[in-house]
């Protein structure tokens, strides 16, 4: 800010404050967890109201594809964490490479998801399709929640990827350095959250029998 009077406060909101940025990110992640938390509550309530139907419907899901995606996301969480360590040690090139690897993992995840969803849609299981409309009570709820929750998760994968893209750009430009790497760190935090949510989605939809 302009200090016309020649006086300036020591604790300015316009100072660079990595601690504050990180705190802001944590708070934001907190709201994200609550957002999905609302959905988990709905899932739990409906599962307990329709246990049979949820069980039957869950057999339709492809456990292999789910497992693949789980592994892919776990690996990507590792690469992003390593990329932060790399930049802390001042190795910009390695940091960028690891972030690119994370993005590759994101793409693999999306491709697998694409095949998974298309298979369901071919079977007419998307809300509004013929088969879906004639599902027994409860099963349609399962598929609605399946598409809604994994869809919202995919949306977060996209957002996370964009943020990582920014972090790569900043590092390439040399604006992220050994001393200031808050953006990379925050991108990592966001990515871990995306991963964490999947870790809950996967057993809820694919595994519980």
């Amino acid at each position: 800010m302009e200090h016309v009077s020649g006086f300036s406060l020591p604790n300015s909101g316009h100072n660079r404050d990595a601690e504050a940025s990180k705190m802001g990110m944590w708070l934001f992640l907190f709201t994200e967890i609550l957002l999905f938390g609302g959905l988990f509550i709905v899932y739990m309530v409906y599962r307990s109201l329709n246990p049979e139907a949820f069980l039957m419907a869950s057999f339709e899901l492809n456990v292999w594809m789910g497992t693949t995606n789980t592994v892919v996301l776990l690996v990507s969480s590792m690469t992003i964490a390593m990329s932060i360590t790399a930049i802390q040690k001042g190795n910009r090139k390695l940091s960028i490479q690891l972030m690119v690897l994370t993005l590759v993992a994101a793409v693999i995840f999306m491709v697998v998801k694409y095949f998974e969803w298309s298979a369901k849609i071919e079977h007419g299981l998307f809300p509004g399709q013929a088969v879906y409309d004639n599902l027994p009570p409860g099963e349609s709820l399962f598929f609605f929640l399946y598409f809604f929750m994994t869809g919202l998760h995919v949306f977060h994968i996209i957002i996370g990827s964009v943020v990582i893209g920014f972090a790569i750009h900043r590092t390439a430009k040399g604006r992220t350095t050994k001393e200031k790497y808050t953006l990379t760190e925050n991108a990592g935090l966001l990515w871990h959250l995306v991963d964490l949510i999947w870790i809950y989605l996967f057993p809820l939809f694919y595994l519980i029998h």
């Binding site: 907190f30 709201t31 957002l35 938390g37 709905v42 509004g128 349609s140």
Partner: peptide, 30 residues
């Protein structure tokens, strides 16, 4: 921070219900 996300997701569910024409809160489908 703690309360707003819950209404956010609830309102999104209402939106999805209307857009896809299915009843997430409809007793006839559980």
């Amino acid at each position: 921070l703690l309360a707003t996300p819950i209404i956010g997701i609830t309102l999104l569910m209402i939106t999805a219900e209307r857009v896809f024409g299915v009843g997430l809160f409809d007793p006839s489908i559980g």
